[in-house]
Computed example of a mutant assay.
Amino acid sequence: MTDRVVHDRITLMGCQVDNLTMQETLGRVERFIASGLPHQHVVVNVDKLVKASRDPGLQQIINDCALVNADGMPVVWASRLLGKPLKERVAGVDLFEALMARAGDKGWRVFLLGAREEVVGKVAELYTRRYPRLVLAGYRNGYWQGAQEAAAVAEQVRASRADLLFVAISSPQKEQFLGQYQAHMQVPFAMGVGGSFDVAIGKVKRAPRWMQRAGLEWFYRFLQEPRRMFRRYFIEDMAFFKLLIKEAFKNRRAGQG
């Protein structure tokens, strides 16, 4: 999390977000890798902003990251409503795909961490076949227990000498794992990728492009797994609107002052 760049950041609901396009983000990552120093990445969406508002530790981890992208059109719309317009959405799944392609072009070393063993194994096979020059530094499932086993996982990643680490475990566990072990692992760029592994192998389908552009990707996801996603989208994430209204009033009072 060293060499943090903050000059083009905005603050949304207590979380700092880099105001970058996809191409600017890729350029930033390339500089991170060239530096050889450890950097942590995170995306923020509605769910992450709500969790961070309730968990100061998670919020601090986000704000300490070297690179923070907005993943989700509602976050981009909120930035515009609050007078801090983000240039565009940089979805984690799209950034993951773009970085794997660039790793294949440049021969970067990649470590895949997370999901079930059969899933991460299929992801490793898929991308090494697609990009013959990609160097697979290693891969491992995302299931471990206790601090001792977590430390062993971190040591495995460190020993792999990876340039890129993609972590597909749930939030806030992935942010906490990276926040605790990134300095030890010494990976130039570590990124949580959510469900990107499942999308990559076709286990989960992404919404059509028009739904992504309209900000309805969450609804497509809900239709795929209504029981699992109902609580998140229709109960837990409703707190986002309270946060938005609160911040809008705070900005208005500050403007009047």
Rank of each mutant, 00 (worst) to 15 (best):
V5N: 13
V5M: 13
V6L: 13
V6T: 12
L12E: 03
L12S: 10
G14K: 07
C15T: 05
C15E: 09
Q16C: 12
L20Q: 06
T21I: 06
T21C: 09
M22P: 02
Q23Y: 15
E24L: 15
T25Q: 13
F32W: 10
I33A: 06
A34T: 05
G36F: 02
H39K: 03
V43I: 15
V44K: 00
V50Q: 02
K51P: 08
K51N: 07
K51Y: 01
P56E: 07
P56D: 03
I61T: 15
A70T: 10
V76M: 04
R80C: 10
L82P: 13
L82T: 06
K84L: 12
P85H: 06
L86K: 13
L86R: 13
V90Q: 05
V93Q: 05
L99G: 00
A101H: 11
R102C: 01
D105K: 09
W108M: 05
G121Y: 01
R129L: 12
R129H: 11
R129T: 10
R129P: 09
L134Y: 05
L134N: 00
L134P: 03
V135I: 06
V135Y: 10
G142T: 10
G146Y: 11
E149D: 13
A152E: 14
V157A: 03
A159N: 04
S160P: 11
R161C: 01
D163Y: 02
F166W: 12
S170K: 01
S170V: 01
Q173N: 15
K174E: 00
Y181G: 09
Q182G: 11
A183Q: 10
H184C: 05
M185L: 03
F189C: 07
G192I: 10
G192H: 09
G194I: 04
G195N: 09
G195I: 14
F197L: 00
F197D: 01
V204Q: 03
V204I: 08
A214S: 14
E217D: 08
Y220Q: 09
F222D: 06
R228W: 04
R232L: 00
D237M: 06
M238G: 08
A239C: 08
F241G: 02
K242Y: 00
L243F: 06
I245V: 07
I245C: 05
E247K: 02
A248T: 12
R252T: 12
Q256M: 05
